[in-house]
């Protein structure tokens, strides 16, 4: 091939490669989330109460312990599961009993769930039970929220803040 033609061919090659790189670096577009919907993220990490409540050690039991490990109370490690419910406008959209984490079952229960909802005025009810107390949930939150399209509302739980929080 003649030299000018080779140069032209090389130019075309480099232009084509650059075009290919530029093209697929941003095209085709990806519709990750419908623009006319909103999202609720229910996420929490919460350690439930222990399966066995802590109890006071007797003087004999304390005496049997190595001197460096003597303490007045003993607590079993294992925790209870956490039961969580979320209702949107009265519809139960999430209802799970989550086991505690960790090999010994002594870690927090973890929940991370994304829910797609219609935007607009919504009534949210979130409930959590982290004890073996019979009957009602230990925590409950009721809230009226106004969700805009593409809004992401986080429903979190912080025991130190008194229960569920919207973020």
């Amino acid at each position: 091939m003649r030299e000018p033609l080779r140069w032209a061919g090389q130019t075309v090659f480099f232009v084509a490669i650059a075009a290919m790189v530029g093209l697929f670096a941003s095209w085709p577009s990806y519709r990750q989330f419908p623009e006319d919907q909103a999202q609720i993220k229910l996420s929490l990490s919460h350690g439930a109460q222990r399966v066995e409540a802590c109890r006071r050690l007797s003087a004999e039991e304390i005496a049997k312990l190595p001197p460096a490990e003597r303490r007045p109370n003993t607590c079993a490690r294992e925790r209870l599961p956490v039961h969580v419910q979320l209702l949107v406008d009265g519809d139960l959209v999430f209802d799970e009993v989550v086991a505690p984490g960790g090999l010994a079952g002594d870690g927090p229960a973890r929940i991370y769930r994304k829910l797609i909802v219609e935007p607009g005025q919504r009534e949210l009810v979130a409930r959590l039970k982290d004890s073996d107390r019979p009957g009602a949930f230990d925590y409950e939150m009721r809230a009226e929220v106004s969700l805009a399209p593409q809004q992401s509302l986080a429903v979190d739980f912080r025991a130190d803040a008194g229960g569920f929080v919207l973020r």
Binding site: A19, G22, S26, Y30, R31, Q32, F33, E35, Q150, S152
Partner: peptide, 27 residues
């Protein structure tokens, strides 16, 4: 390519909103 088709950001991140349509770098 950098001059003709510069790399651009796609609007500031906002964790209170879900990004709808994105231009992915497919590579």
């Amino acid at each position: 390519l950098s001059l003709v088709h510069p790399a651009l950001s796609q609007g500031p991140a906002d964790l209170a909103r879900v990004p709808g349509t994105l231009q992915l770098d497919w590579f």
